[in-house]
């Protein structure tokens, strides 16, 4: 008989039969063989694989000691030398979902083996960990166990055998997008798609459009003369020499620069790092993108209360929406902490 694939199962204190919320601070431990729902997986997985061990950890312990708990759990999993790890499923249990997602992600990143878990679509662990882990869609409570197990087991087996998997065919949430070489060039695929669409036949778009996030404008300030204003730009204005090396496209960071002693931006002192537009005019007079000169005039005239002593800048060019959101929320937090009332946000 050929060698069996070795699997490890990760579960929480509840599914290990230790107890509910009152036992959620249980420290991680490992036990050989199956525990709790592991039996159902064992049956669904069949003969060519074996759950060699189960690692259990209390949800409170895991989430409150995230870094150390993650390390402990991973070390326990590693000692079994597994080929794949199954975590959960967590259904709609938030902290269990966070733990399953973290375990699955770390297993894939550090042990370089696949990991499969399962969650309900509203589990907060999904958004946090979906981009790497294979997270199968489940119902919102343990009633869904009977249906989730065979789907997760089937996906696990495919991954163990190195077979191709997809979110559609294998019922897991889309992880991320990846380039591949299609059979025909794009223009021929477009013509084929159009012919099908014209005939009313089924066709499959290569990029399903996401629901778009629109932001309602905030209410207007009542008294500008008392307001503290900040300047923020995605137009790439940085001190000359771009000290933080913000990329000309696909920025991986933003910068914050002290302008408390700066009256106006000049060609000698500032420039743009942005690669999405002709830099000549912005470099010649950086106030064209970050309007420090006119805001200083407004300040002198008493039209605004004060100007925040730092400005924030990044490059909007080719920067992913996810990164832009991340930078924006960090910048907004800092501005709020500094008592800023309003922002002049310039783009290009």
């Amino acid at each position: 008989m050929t060698k069996k694939f070795r699997l490890v199962h990760y579960i929480n204190q509840f599914y290990a039969g230790i107890g509910g919320e009152d036992k959620a601070d249980v420290k991680p431990f490992a036990k050989d063989g199956v525990v709790g729902p592991g039996m159902a997986f064992k049956n669904a997985l069949g003969d060519d694989s074996e759950i060699v061990g189960t690692v259990v950890c209390g949800d409170t312990y895991f989430n409150e000691n995230l870094e150390s708990a993650q390390k402990e759990v991973l070390a326990m999993i590693k000692q079994y030398e597994p080929d794949l790890v199954i975590a959960g499923p967590a259904f709609n249990a938030g902290r269990y979902g966070m733990a399953c997602g973290a375990v699955a992600t770390e297993v894939m990143a550090q042990l370089h083996i696949p990991a499969v878990t399962g969650m309900y679509e509203e589990n907060p662990g999904l958004d946090m960990y979906r981009k790497d882990a294979y997270i199968v869609a489940t119902r919102n409570s343990a009633i869904g166990m009977r249906k989730a197990v065979p789907v997760m087991a089937k996906l696990a087996l495919k991954l163990l055998h190195g077979e191709e998997v997809s979110p559609d065919a294998d019922h897991y949430f889309v992880r991320h997008r990846k380039n591949f070489t299609a059979e025909k060039r794009g223009s021929a695929r477009a013509v084929d798609m159009l012919v099908k669409k014209l005939k009313g036949e089924d066709f499959k778009t290569e990029y399903p459009m996401p629901a778009f996030d629109n932001v309602e404008p905030a209410p207007a300030l009542k008294d500008l003369s008392k307001a503290k204003i900040a300047l923020v730009t995605s137009g790439g204005i940085v001190p000359k020499g771009n000290p933080d090396h913000i990329e000309s496209s696909s920025a991986s960071k933003y910068g914050s620069y002290d302008i408390s002693d700066v009256k106006t931006l000049t060609e000698e002192t500032y420039e743009t790092a942005h690669g999405g537009y002709d830099p000549a005019y912005a470099n010649e007079n950086p106030n064209r993108v970050l309007p420090l000169d006119v805001i200083r005039d407004a300040q002198a005239a008493g039209e605004i209360g004060s100007l925040h002593d730092h400005f924030y800048a990044t490059v909007g060019n080719g920067t992913s929406v996810a990164n832009a959101k991340k930078y924006a929320s960090e910048i907004a937090e800092k501005l709020r902490a500094d008592g800023v009332d309003a922002v002049i946000l310039t783009s290009t």
Partner: peptide, 14 residues
């Protein structure tokens, strides 16, 4: 990543 569809490359959900 030419947008006239000059190449065979595409991207998919995985």
């Amino acid at each position: 990543t030419n947008e006239l569809g000059f190449n065979k490359m595409s991207a998919q959900e995985v």
